[in-house]
Write a protein that binds this DNA or RNA. Structure first.
Lengths: 249, 249
DNA sequence: CGTCAGTTTGACCTAGTTCAAGGCCAGTGG
DNA sequence: CCACTGGCCTTGAACTAGGTCAAACTGACG
């Protein structure tokens, strides 16, 4: 257990700021939270199905995702988490993990002991409310994914996910709304959207041909935000952002 | 606002019991919560996308479901809620509804004012934790649906949903584990599982032909629980039931 | 320069969709 | 008591979105 890292605590404070106007005493309390920082390479499991974690993790850099592998070997990705997110807050109240948490890219995360988080929440109910709210937004995003997978065409699904990632990245200042780091490989996109790798590839080509996006490597450029939101049927309300997302262009 | 109905408060207490051993003072506090009871016919919206509810609702009898209609007109059902559930707890912290809540069958529900629930949670942190936990289980069930829709075949999806409904109904004593009220029409099953009505029909026939289930009207009989869980790849861990589900047979 | 992860392509295939028509049954009104 | 609805379930035939398999291509990196 290291001394609290200022940047990690700052990240947490920024996250809480997105929920309510944090007070001085709350800020001080958060700054005093002990966190242990750890770096991971790409594609490493941080928590596994069946684990009973005693801490939860705050993403400092990189990207994590949550997933499950069915008995048939097929994989489903449930969510993507970028800097500032706490992907496994649910472990505070559900003792056994029902899915896996892994890195998508090389990432650094800060671990917070459950009992420390619990103490913090008892002392500062607004922090507790903010954490609860985070898990609820997570669920809302999950519902949007479900609607996508269940009821959208392949092109709509991919477009919707791009819109979502762009909106989230914008909200934390990780993009100007034009270029963004699409952390997923095409295989992972397929596992997130319930499609095969081959079909993701063809769908991306179709998005490029329609001049909605361009790609170079894993960096994606949004060429036509209005067009993209239209094929995605994208309505950002479900993200429950405090400020409406300043859309590209 | 009526006087608190004993049965409604009892339902709430039973729900909380599923999370922790409730104390006398907590019990008394719950019994004192004012609730207004209301009955609905089938297929009626209780809350709509865009609403900003000031109360949340406890299901007393019947069944509710949450859903969204995409711009294309296609419908996705996110969850099913039976007696004892509080389907819109998330409205405590997300002020705008991002989906609809409706009755599947004629149902009675009890409404609890948000501010009353908030007061209760401030006084009794274990109740707050139990409510939070409920929303987390809801999210876990959502992930299981997502995995189903994304990565299971039609027959696996239908079988999985039947296993889930049976397990949940058993946990609250609404079934002996053999016969259960499959509240969904085939059209609604399709909207829940991302399939067409026609294909749901053919899939149900296939389940019947394999002697896994039988149906008469909307009552479904599970003939072969082991076989059903196998085609469903069903593992009830994600339901986070306190007691492991006593499976049929 | 070889290797390996990821992307792209082509050919073929199938699970699930769509559309359109019937059938069943419970409720209603005459 | 019967005819007439209106939901819901069932069937058939034709179709297509997306899957599968297998091979080739690209680029980064040791």
């Amino acid at each position: 257990m290291h001394a609290p890292s200022p940047t990690a605590a700052e990240m947490l404070i920024r996250k809480l700021q997105a929920n309510f106007d944090i007070g001085d005493r709350e800020r001080d309390a958060v700054l005093a939270v002990p966190m242990s920082i750890r770096s991971y390479g790409a594609d490493q499991d941080i928590a596994r199905e069946g684990d009973r974690p005693s801490q939860c993790c705050l993403v400092l850099s990189g990207a994590l995702y949550r997933y499950q592998v069915l008995a048939s070997g097929r994989k489903q990705i449930f969510s993507l988490h970028i800097a500032g997110d706490i992907p496994d807050l649910q472990s505070l109240h559900l003792d056994t993990m029902d899915h896996n948490l892994a890195t998508l890219q090389p990432s650094t995360v800060a671990f917070l002991q459950h009992h420390v988080v619990r103490d913090l929440m008892v002392q500062y109910p607004r922090i507790a409310a903010a954490f609860w709210r985070e898990t609820l937004i997570d669920a809302a995003i999950g519902r949007a994914w479900m609607a996508s997978i269940g009821r959208r065409s392949a092109i709509g699904r991919v477009a919707h996910l791009i819109c979502e990632i762009a909106s989230k990245a914008m909200a934390v200042g990780l993009t100007n709304g034009q270029n963004l780091d699409l952390s997923f490989t095409q295989e992972e996109l397929g596992d997130a959207l319930g499609l095969s790798t081959v079909h993701i590839n063809r769908t991306m080509q179709s998005l490029r041909r329609s001049r909605l996006v361009a790609t170079q490597g894993r960096v994606l450029t949004i060429l036509d935000w209005a067009g993209l939101t239209e094929v995605a049927e994208f309505d950002p309300a479900y993200l429950h952002l405090r400020a409406p997302p300043a859309t590209a262009q």
